[in-house]
């Protein structure tokens, strides 16, 4: 008896000690982005259309100069659970873009204005063109960026996350990056040429110059025009771009839960009734 307890204790100790050491090493490596409040967090959280519209404005005016969103179509802007543009508004936005189409009957590619069915045209025709224009740097496509970035949570936090439904580490990270620029890197840190110092970027040397400054994008609804607010709005927009069916998912999820809880309850009492005679015979 006692020796098996000893074994358990020894294993537990070995694992936790090594884990502790590695946690400490990891903590030095990466700053943890502060958690933000998101309207779409939690079991009933849905997107805030006004916030998505503000985020779209930032994307259109700032991000889209370098970053593509190839998987987003103009028609998506009018989809339910999105930024809530009307179909006419979405068509007007589409008409503002020039799309390369073709080949036509003469075998030529041609330019025409965008339609609802078109996808957002990328700022560069290909990756090589992007690199050539941006000093060798390739801005990632933003279609699923908010789900492609995460925060290393580590033990035991990753277990709590399953219960608290924390799924917003991607948007938290994007917000943190936009707010993590520092004019002067800490003493002793030298950056490669063309890089800037970002507190939250892995390795801290980020190729993207600080994209947003206070007051840069005009809001007409009285929302504060700060980098903090811009970061939240554009991160929410990018989350919607990455997961446009979140609202539908959470709504259906609640219905499924109500159904399954009722079903489980009925089956439980059916089971008790069926087993009653077995329980009370012998």
């Amino acid at each position: 008896m006692n020796h098996t307890r000893g074994i358990v204790l020894a294993f537990g100790l070995a694992v936790s000690l090594s884990a502790l050491g590695a946690r400490a090493a990891l903590a030095q490596e990466q700053e943890i982005p502060p958690k933000q409040h998101w309207s779409f967090a939690g079991p009933f959280g849905l997107y805030d259309p006004a916030q998505l519209q503000r985020g779209f404005k930032i994307y259109k005016e700032v991000c889209s100069n370098c970053h593509s969103i190839k998987l987003l179509a103009f028609r998506n802007l009018a989809d339910p659970g999105g930024p809530g543009f009307t179909e006419a508004q979405a068509a007007a936005i589409a008409a503002g873009y020039q799309i390369t189409d073709g080949p036509n009957d003469q075998g030529e590619m041609f330019q025409r204005s965008g339609k609802l069915a078109d996808h957002f045209p990328p700022p560069f025709p290909n990756d090589q063109a992007a690199r050539a224009a941006l000093g060798g740097k390739l801005p990632p496509d933003m279609s699923v960026l908010a789900k492609a970035r995460s925060v290393e949570r580590g033990f035991p936090w990753f277990i709590f996350d399953a219960f608290t439904q924390y799924q917003e580490d991607g948007p938290d990270y994007i917000h943190a990056i936009l707010n993590g620029y520092e004019d002067h890197p800490p003493a002793g840190v030298t950056l490669p040429p063309g890089a800037e110092y970002n507190k939250y970027f892995p390795g801290h040397a980020i190729g993207m110059p600080k994209p947003l400054n206070d007051g840069q994008v005009q809001y007409t609804d009285g929302t504060p025009m700060t980098v903090d607010q811009y970061g939240r709005d554009v991160a929410a927009f990018l989350m919607w771009v990455a997961e446009p069916t979140l609202d539908a998912r959470k709504r259906l999820g609640f219905q499924v839960f109500v159904f399954l809880i009722v079903l489980s309850g009925l089956l439980y009492f059916t089971k008790r009734m069926v087993w009653y005679e077995v329980k009370h015979q012998s």
């Binding site: 789900k147 970035r149 799924q167 991607g170 999820g253 499924v256």
Partner: peptide, 12 residues
């Protein structure tokens, strides 16, 4: 499936 669909996946 409905609340943390990407929890078990890897963001990469």
């Amino acid at each position: 499936v409905f609340y943390i669909p990407n929890y078990l996946g890897h963001s990469d």
